[in-house]
């Protein structure tokens, strides 16, 4: 195709992308709270353009050509890791997956030793997931490239918040003014912490819903309202964001049983009826069907954004990677 597109058609995604690329405000992306409203909106706009690209037959770009993206997952996560891998590859980066658990790279090594070793291989972008809160921050102090926090313990998972915000904005045309109810195991959830921060920044009002044993101490001081009655918590909500409940946390530790949990905090049609008429349902995956969410709700394309979230994940991560790389370039790295 050499002819220019007719004026009524939107510009080709690639041009939009080039026009929207910006320099990420920090060298690393560790916390959703690092973005202000303007930066978050810029990031979502860029991600939007990547969604369009990803829907074309030709999805590859050369924005990250010559760059090395290293996936360093101390905790297994097929979903997030492949999302970053695809995002990196579509942008033309060389992607290396490290699984420190199964390889010998970290035998007896501290996280910092590992960071120093990997840094010597000069990755430009280092995507890290680790079971300890603060691990990504610690690592970022020891490497010369950009660190992207892909989940640190119970602290943050900022790219998840970006993809969630993107999914919401595409479904409603805005984030500001919406009421989002985040439901379930907030205590152990990095997804919840990142979402509270970013949704706040973007002007949504946030509710946290869950049993008291799964609610962080003084969560009401996060600028949210806390509900232990799910029906009240969902009343009039535009978005119902369900969180995954780790199976080992049921069976008497934090809640008495799976069935009791589902009865009071599982999302089904009856509880969802309390939400706003066109409410959307989200879940970061993988889902425990019949524990925190009813299949009937999860699979209904009219109300579920769960599949969109996976698609938006790749676009959101492309936007993060591209803008971080842009910043590296600007700083002569």
């Amino acid at each position: 195709m050499t002819a220019k597109p007719p004026p009524h058609e939107p510009a080709a995604p690639i041009e939009t992308i080039r026009a929207r690329i910006f320099s990420f405000p920090r060298r690393h992306f560790l916390s959703a709270g690092d973005l202000n409203a303007l930066q978050a909106t810029e990031l979502l706009d860029l991600a939007d353009a990547f969604v369009a690209l990803n829907r074309q037959t030709t999805k590859s770009l050369d924005i990250l050509k010559g760059r090395t993206l290293m996936n360093l997952f101390f905790e297994n996560s097929t979903r997030t890791q492949s999302s970053f891998e695809i995002a990196g590859k579509r942008l033309g980066a060389d992607v290396v997956n490290m699984s420190p658990r199964t390889s010998s790279i970290t035998k007896g090594e501290t996280l910092i030793d590992t960071a120093v070793t990997l840094n010597a291989m000069r990755p430009d972008l280092l995507v890290v997931r680790h079971a300890s809160s603060g691990a990504a921050s610690l690592l970022s102090q020891k490497v010369s490239g950009s660190v992207i926090n892909a989940g640190d313990g119970q602290h943050e998972h900022p790219t998840q918040a970006v993809l969630d915000a993107l999914s919401i904005r595409r479904a409603f045309g805005r984030v500001s003014g919406l009421t989002v109810a985040i439901c379930g195991d907030v205590l152990h959830s990095r997804v919840a912490r990142s979402n509270v921060a970013l949704l706040h920044t973007l002007g949504a009002s946030v509710r946290l819903v869950g049993p008291p044993t799964l609610m962080p101490a003084q969560a009401e001081r996060w600028g949210v309202t806390v509900h232990h009655d799910m029906k009240a918590g969902l009343a009039g909500a535009d978005v119902v964001m369900m969180l995954r409940l780790q199976l080992e946390r049921m069976q008497g530790a934090f809640v008495p049983s799976t069935r009791e949990y589902f009865r009071f905090y599982g999302l089904d049609r009856e509880k969802l009826a309390r939400a706003a008429p066109k409410a959307k349902v989200m879940h970061p995956g993988p889902m425990n069907r019949g524990v925190e969410i009813d299949s009937d709700v999860a699979d209904d394309p009219e109300i579920s954004l769960i599949q969109d979230q996976v698609e938006m994940g790749v676009a959101a991560r492309m936007a993060v990677l591209a803008s971080l790389a842009h910043r590296l370039e600007e700083h002569g790295q």
Partner: peptide, 13 residues
């Protein structure tokens, strides 16, 4: 220590 700080930071408290 259990409280607002540990809750925000996602630290076991």
């Amino acid at each position: 220590t259990g409280g607002e700080f540990a809750g925000r930071m996602g630290l076991p408290s």
